[in-house]
Every structure is written in C-alpha cells, then in structure tokens.
Simulated assay, not measured.
Amino acid sequence: MAGHSKWKNIAHRKGRQDAARGKIFTKLSKEIFVAAREGGGDPNANSRLRLAMNKAREHNMPNDNIERVIKKATGELEGVNYEEINYEGYGPGGVAIYVEVLTDSRNRAASDMRHIFSKYGGNLGELGCVNWMFDKKGVINIMKEENSIQEEELLLLALEGGADDMRSEEEYYEVITQPEVFEEVKATITAAGVKVSNSEVTMVPQNTITLTGDEAQKMLILIDKLEDNDDVQNVYSNFDISQEDLEKYQG
C-alpha cells in the first residue's frame, strides 16, 4: 500500500496536545453529532456513529457527554446544527491538502480557510482538485515494542480478518483495510491479544511527495494551523518528511 505518510503518526502526540487544550472533545462531539443526525442515534445500525463513539471513548470522553450529543442530534435536546464542508488546496512543494470541516457558520469557515492557506504558504483550490489523490481506508497501527507478535503471524491474522495489506515500519506495523471491514479486522487483531496503538478510517494518499528543509517546516506549520482551527475535523495531505526534519520542528 503506497502513500500513507509517516507524518500521520504526529497525530498520536497531537491528539494528546489537543486534549490538553480542550479541543479534542469539541471535534469528537461534532463528529458524533453529524453521524447521529444523518444515520440515527443507534450505533448498532449506524457504522459512522459507532466509529465516532469508539474514537471518543479511546480519548476518555465521558459516556454522559456522548449520549447528550446524540440526543441533541436526534432532536431530543436543543442544540446547534453543524454543516459538513470539504476544502482542497496545495501546500509548499505542491503537496495536496484535503480538509474536512464541521461548522455552524459556513461564512466563518470559508474565511478562516482562505486566511490560513494564504498566510502560511498554501493555495486554496477548487472542490475536486485533490480529493482524487486519496483513497478512503481503514488504518490500524500496532507498535512493535508493545507487542511480541511476529510480522508473519500478524500478517496472517490481518488477512484472516479481511485486511488488504500490511506494512512494517521501523517502530510499528500498519494494517490497511477497506472501510467496510475496518471494525472486523481490528476485532480479529485485538481478540488475539494484540495491542492496537491507533486506528481510524482515514484518507490515504495514493502517492507521497517528500519535503525537506524549509518546505518541510512550512508544511508542518500550515498543517498545525489548520488543525488548530475549531471548525476543522481532519486534515489529510500527501507529503512525507524525514525523522530529522520532524524532530527539528518538534524541537
């Protein structure tokens, strides 16, 4: 499976930073709200809601909060309404950027996206200009130091559950699935006693562009500014950088 860039593993640390700033619960609540509004409040009959609830629990979001958001979405409680909007554009080095937004103000979101892209070295493009460069996939990461399972055994386990492929990186294994079988593959892996460090249904780039030096640093700043926006749910890109450049930025 080509293209799932290593920079995505920033998300693990970034998630903890967002939690410290109180942002992650807001993003999770919005995703739960839209999933319940569109597919109903029963997670057994609504896979998007089920995934959103599981992700919220992984981040220790209280069940009372989850239930309250679902009730607002289904009309049992009064609440705001969120609209889903996607923005597409380019960053330093011509890399593709795909942004998923959930907002209660379309005008504010559009203004914010134009401002962030232009101020931090990007270019906002037309709808459809880059989304064709990504495939929707389930991604399951297993840290090697946290598990004793061998690569061949894990691969057989993943394929048994219905996975498409598995990659071995220096610190982790990455299992790739179709979205429809993501939960089944994850359940098969965890049932064998394997600890999953991170899992999500995400947009995986078909190919990546490697950035170095100033371009890499500018790209990381642009991604951070986009992710820090309250209306932004997810940011996807097809860039990759070296561990050295990543450490300089985190420095």
Rank of each mutant, 00 (worst) to 15 (best):
S148I: 14
C129P: 02
E31A: 12
N207R: 08
I189N: 09
L211S: 03
I32H: 13
H4N: 06
A163G: 01
P43L: 12
G79E: 03
E151L: 05
D42Y: 14
N60S: 14
G22I: 08
D42K: 11
E169D: 12
A216F: 02
E126F: 10
I66Y: 02
A52V: 05
K30E: 10
D64E: 12
A19T: 12
D42I: 13
N229L: 10
Y90T: 13
M53V: 02
L49F: 04
A163Q: 04
D165T: 06
G128L: 09
E84N: 00
V99N: 00
H12V: 09
G121R: 08
D135T: 09
S111K: 05
G89M: 01
E200P: 03
V101L: 13
G93H: 02
E200I: 02
R50T: 05
R108V: 13
R48N: 02
E247V: 12
A2C: 12
E126I: 04
K72L: 09
V196S: 04
A216M: 02
G161H: 06
Y98M: 09
R50W: 12
I223S: 04
E31G: 04
G121I: 00
S5L: 03
E84Q: 00
G213W: 14
K186Q: 09
E215A: 07
V204H: 04
S111H: 05
I85E: 08
G39V: 05
L49Q: 04
E152A: 12
D42L: 11
G79Q: 07
F25M: 08
A187P: 06
E170V: 10
E83I: 12
A109L: 12
V139A: 05
S118D: 01
I10E: 14
R48C: 08
E84A: 06
E67V: 00
T208H: 00
T208M: 00
T202A: 06
G161I: 08
N65C: 11
L28R: 03
E200L: 09
E31F: 08
R13M: 07
E247S: 09
E38Q: 13
R68N: 08
S105R: 01
A191N: 00
A158H: 11
L246R: 15
R108M: 11
G122D: 04
I140R: 08
L154V: 00
A158F: 14
F182Y: 13
D64H: 08
L157K: 05
G138T: 01
M166P: 01
L211T: 02
I70T: 04
A45S: 13
D231N: 04
A192L: 06
T26R: 02
L127E: 14
I221M: 07
W132V: 02
E160Q: 10
N141P: 01
A2K: 15
A35K: 01
V34D: 03
V185P: 07
S197G: 08
I142W: 12
I140W: 00
E215K: 13
G39R: 07
A20D: 15
E160F: 14
